[in-house]
């Protein structure tokens, strides 16, 4: 068996790569949430919801998702807003 083992070597699952990927994703998140600067995010989220509500009747707080991605060179703020499937006609 061993004679041919390096010819038709069964590719083992590269679990080390999975470990690395999971860590990178997790730590990117933990590093950003662990700092005091991230404390304004909930407040920002509230303000954004209030601002959008003035114009669009979105359902609730869960429709707005605010995320911060922090990198060495730059950070990005990602805001996702789910709008209801059918918008009621505007007043004006």
């Amino acid at each position: 068996m061993n004679l041919f083992s390096f010819v038709r070597k069964p590719r083992p699952a590269q679990s080390a790569q999975t470990a690395k990927d999971r860590l990178q994703i997790l730590l990117a998140h933990e590093r950003s949430s662990g700092t005091a600067e991230a404390d304004y995010l909930p407040m920002l989220q509230r303000d954004i919801i209030a601002a959008i509500r003035k114009h669009v009747p979105i359902i609730g707080d869960k429709d707005v998702d605010v995320r911060m991605e922090r990198g060495d060179q730059m950070s990005s703020l990602e805001i996702n807003i789910d709008l209801p499937a059918s918008l009621p006609p505007k007043k004006g």
Partner: peptide, 9 residues
Amino acid sequence: SGEMMTVED
């Protein structure tokens, strides 16, 4: 064998 993270990782 790919089951442990490398030093570089």
